[in-house]
Design a protein around this nucleic acid. Structure first.
Length: 552
RNA sequence: GGUGAUGUAGCUCAGUUGGUUAGAGCGCAGCAUUCAUAAUGCUGAGGUCGAGAGUUCAAAUCUCUCCAUCACCA
């Protein structure tokens, strides 16, 4: 039995969860649910990423404390995840006592390992607001094309990159005053000294090939030291023995993975060390978006390694979500929040299925094409999958009082084959889940769903039912429909990590509570309940309503 | 600008180490069927595999150039 700790990236506490975020949580959740079904010991943790300037400023604007803001957002995020059936073992916050302690511990270890240095730097400063300004809070005219209102790092009009110092008529986004330059001491993590370790770690099978390519680029450029401190005012953890200096949010964010597990371990009486001590033989797997590869494949393993902890076993990066082939956009209404989806479309299984049908192990972007979404839900799920019990259970009720012929008593060759073939693909299903080749797995499962429908057409139970005075015909009818329903049950077990709500209803239809193990496929089922419609078709009006809720 | 990726039927995507007439689902057309939420099954139309050049007996697949789209640049 494997012992695995899995994480999804921490959502930032400055905004709502949207469908782009959900790609990752759904991908991770499916993988975790699959691991539970093959009886591995797995813990899935996450947390809100709470620190930094944006949260501080938003709280100020709303006239509440950052702690209050972070708490409100945590409620909202928790509800969103729970409504999408994301099965975290713990969804915590980086603004926690565990995280503070762990961050301090790690920082002290890095210091004693001589991996931290103090250096004076010069930074922009808003003298009215009395705070240092991150690059994105400075705007001005692009030095190349003179476009106005461009950010301090790059121009959105002409695409050129530069330093904030190059901007013409630079101003602070916060107070509107011209920023001045001011000297200050910052703390740096000496990442450049970790190059050998990191080159080795990144090439030891921890990353996808594309991710590894990407890192080569960074190694070629040479790793520079990492600025891990920010000056007050800053919402975060104060650095020990450095009054007025705070940990940069990206230092304590990944430590939030540990802190979330620490909290869980304390509650559940698990061993924290078993999962985090150096050389641990448990697995640590991070699911992330490709945009934060830098942090998870360089800073994070280096931080762990030089503070005496274990390093991640795997980092799985996925691509971004586009909607109708374009970047999500507030003006097009395609910046779709999790909540607006739940309000209008209601069923989380639809989105979970759609993402499942498109995800794989690569960093490629995936597209949510809304027409395709409707078509997939209606034809795959309603037309084909749910159609199996819908078209066969009536006979079982009418002629056989809801009793089924158990799989091991089915004798008609065609009927036997339709169930046995499905049971026989178990290992293939497992290996596709394991490798995160979800779209490929879906093609496999959907091809079997089609086979069952073909089989029903071929065996024509409605014809057998017309000859209901003949004994032989009735026995055949019983077997033909039972086999379809037994096959449907096996398919449902294979699909259970994908669509928890739907599969729960299906389990109840078979008189079961849920499918804990994939080996449930081998059980012989003898009864069903009356069939009620399991899914409704997805209507375009619901989609339009959803888009409407997101356009401002 | 640099780097990494992507570009296959109307749409969303498969195409293993280069090898017979390039595949699937949806959509479309026709047929069958009526058990099922007009659901299902069968048949068919539809592609110079982004463009050009090269290597090879053979290229969607390898090489080069170009074009387009996307992302990253701490």
């Amino acid at each position: 039995m494997r012992k695995i700790l899995v994480t999804s990236a921490l959502p930032y506490a400055n905004g709502s969860i949207h469908l782009g975020h959900l790609v990752e949580y759904i991908q991770t959740d499916i993988w975790c649910r699959y691991q539970r079904m093959i009886s591995n010991e797995i813990y899935y943790v996450c947390a809100d990423d709470t620190h930094g300037t944006p949260v501080m400023l938003r709280a100020e604007k709303e006239n509440i404390t950052p702690e209050n803001l972070v708490e409100q957002v945590h409620q909202e995020h928790s509800q969103d995840f729970s409504d999408f059936n994301v099965s975290f073992d713990n969804f915590y916050s980086t603004n926690s006592i565990e995280n503070k302690e762990l961050s301090e511990t790690i920082y002290k270890k890095l210091t004693s390992n001589n991996k931290i240095e103090k250096k004076e730097i010069e930074q922009f400063y808003d003298s009215k607001k009395e705070m240092f300004l991150p690059d994105r809070y400075i705007k001005g005219e692009c030095p190349k094309c003179k476009a106005v209102d461009q950010y301090g790092d790059s121009c959105e009009e002409c695409g050129s990159t530069y330093n904030p110092t190059d901007l013409i008529n630079a101003y602070s986004v916060i107070s509107g005053t011209a920023p001045i330059k001011k000297k200050t001491d910052h703390y740096f993590f000496k990442l450049s000294e970790c190059t050998d370790f990191l080159e080795k770690w990144t090439k030891s099978g921890t990353l996808q090939p594309e991710a590894s390519n990407k890192l080569n680029e960074w190694f070629k450029a040479g790793l520079s030291n990492w600025d891990i401190s920010r000056d007050a005012p800053y919402f975060g953890f104060e650095i020990p023995d450095a009054p007025g200096k705070f940990f940069y949010v990206w230092l304590d964010a990944p430590i939030g993975y540990m802190a979330s597990f620490k909290k869980l371990a304390d509650e559940k009486n698990l061993s924290f060390d078993e999962y985090w001590k150096k050389g641990s033989d448990t697995e640590l797997i991070h699911f992330i978006g490709k945009d934060i590869l830098y942090f998870h494949a360089l800073f994070w393993p280096a931080t762990l390694s030089y503070s005496g902890f274990r390093v991640p076993s795997r980092v799985y990066a996925h691509g971004f979500l586009t909607v109708n082939g374009e970047k999500m956009s507030k003006s097009r209404g395609t910046f779709i929040t999790a909540r607006s989806y739940l309000n209008t479309i209601k069923n989380p299984d639809y989105l979970r299925y759609y993402y499942f049908s498109k995800l794989n192990d690569s960093m490629e972007d995936i597209d949510l094409n809304l027409e395709d979404f409707i078509a997939k839900v209606n034809s795959d799920l309603v037309g084909k999958f749910i159609n199996i019990p819908s078209r066969t259970s009536g006979f079982i009720k009418k002629y056989f009082n809801n009793t089924l012929v158990p799989t091991n008593e089915i004798s008609i060759q065609d009927a036997k084959v339709i169930v046995d073939d499905l049971i026989a693909i178990k290992d293939e299903v497992i290996s596709l889940y394991e490798a995160r080749l979800f779209s490929k797995l879906n093609r496999l499962l959907m091809s079997y769903t089609e086979k069952v429908n073909e089989y029903v057409n071929r065996l024509e139970p409605w014809v057998l039912a017309k000859n209901n005075d003949e004994h032989r015909s009735m026995s055949q009818l019983h077997q033909v429909c039972s086999a379809a329903l037994q096959a449907f049950r096996v398919l449902s077990i294979y699909y259970s990590p994908i669509m928890p709500d739907l599969i729960l209803k299906i389990a109840e239809f078979y008189g079961e509570s849920s499918y804990q193990s994939i080996d449930a496929i081998h059980e012989n089922i003898k009864n069903i309940s009356d069939y009620n419609h399991l899914l409704t078709r997805l209507d375009k009006d619901a989609i339009d309503l959803m888009l409407g809720q997101n356009s401002s």
